[in-house]
């Protein structure tokens, strides 16, 4: 993924529990924090009625 442009996904998408941003410096991209606990992500998705964007890297 090196060299891919940094970009932020609009909040309007309202999709992500934690937003994926293609970047060499993911911590700074888009200002979102990654959820890394799968069980927590599932519970949040259930509570908030949102889907999950799950990235394996």
């Amino acid at each position: 993924m090196r060299g891919m442009p940094v970009f932020a996904l609009g909040c309007a998408l309202a999709l992500l529990l934690a937003v994926s941003a293609f970047s060499d410096e993911p911590a700074r991209a888009a200002g979102f924090a990654w959820e890394t606990d799968y069980a927590v992500a599932l519970q949040r998705a259930k509570d908030e009625g949102k889907p999950i964007f799950l990235e394996f890297r």
């Binding site: 993924m1 934690a18 890394t36 990235e55 890297r57």
Partner: peptide, 26 residues
């Protein structure tokens, strides 16, 4: 949600190409 360690992942459910740098599911 980002996973960088597959140790406890259900790879039956998340079955994907093992030789990629990134793979995602919705």
């Amino acid at each position: 949600m980002r996973i960088t360690d597959l140790t406890v992942v259900d790879i039956g459910l998340f079955d994907f190409d093992a030789d990629v740098t990134l793979y995602c599911f919705v």
